[in-house]
Amino acid sequence: MNKYIYYPGCSMEGSARAYAESLSQVAKILDMELATVRDWNCCGATEYLSINLIPAYSLIARNLAIAAGQVNGTNELMAPCSACYLNLEKADYYMAERPALGEKVNEALAAGGLHYKPGSLQIRHLVDVLVNDIGLDVIKSKVVRPLTGLRIAPYLGCMVPRPDYQHRWSDHEYPLELDDLMHVLGAEVIDFPLKTDCCGGHMSQIAPETAYELIRRLVSEADEYQADLMVTVCPMCQMNLDAYQGEANRFFGTKYQMPIVFFTQLMALAFGIDAKSAGFGLELVSAKKALARIGVEAPAPEPASPRRKPDGLPMPPHRRKKYASGREASDEKIAVAE
């Protein structure tokens, strides 16, 4: 039995439910015991650290402190989300490297009766754990439904192999761990050149055009290689590439239909789990066609919940443009154009 302390992160309960569901299936089959960090909180995602350092690190370190208190036969803390993983790693690393920072963070933690000694936990990403602890041989031995004929673009994103404080990855620019893992499932793995490029991160919220371009690059490259689908290891990557693919298509006038799924979903499939339990059907760009290639029937999509009708009374017409331009004539033109 391989034991890990498990930090799920917020996405696993929302947008990345498919990841959570497939992981729990895979963990069962691979005999992994995942002990969830008690009362965990948000890791701060990609923004908080660049806004306010001490509170951001304190937010992260609270999870570390609780996890360290939970050590029971293992001090390995595993996170499936790239952003969570990197944040946990960062906090652990910088609290040790900058003792003054460590002290301040611990002062903040003390308010909640907590303390974290940097270095007490080993922080790992799920892919690293699967490839390096469980091992490709064991994974291979569990495959009952090889993914023969499925062309996969393996996509790691930028945050897992970099900066790699603990030197766990074979390479920072072109790591092959995920490729190897997909390979033992029997899939046809393309040599995806953008495997560590950025998915746009939270640019999709801040400057969508920037994100669209990054999404387009990834999706069009996978399409160029005639991949059936793209696998990701990160809820944020999956969200960007899946949920914004349509927007990006509209923006560029393209028609890509690239399914984006979590790598654990394919592991689960290969281990013989049915598509629904593996979390399929939750993706927005349907993986139905891709699954058909390996003779797996995709579950019927969940019916979208009906949009709520707006409550209350109607708003008066929007007048902001008038105040902004201040000129009747141009205002009229706008009105005509509208």
Partner: peptide
């Protein structure tokens, strides 16, 4: 920075 065959 890189040499790539991924055309944009």
């Amino acid at each position: 920075a890189e040499v790539t065959n991924a055309a944009r």
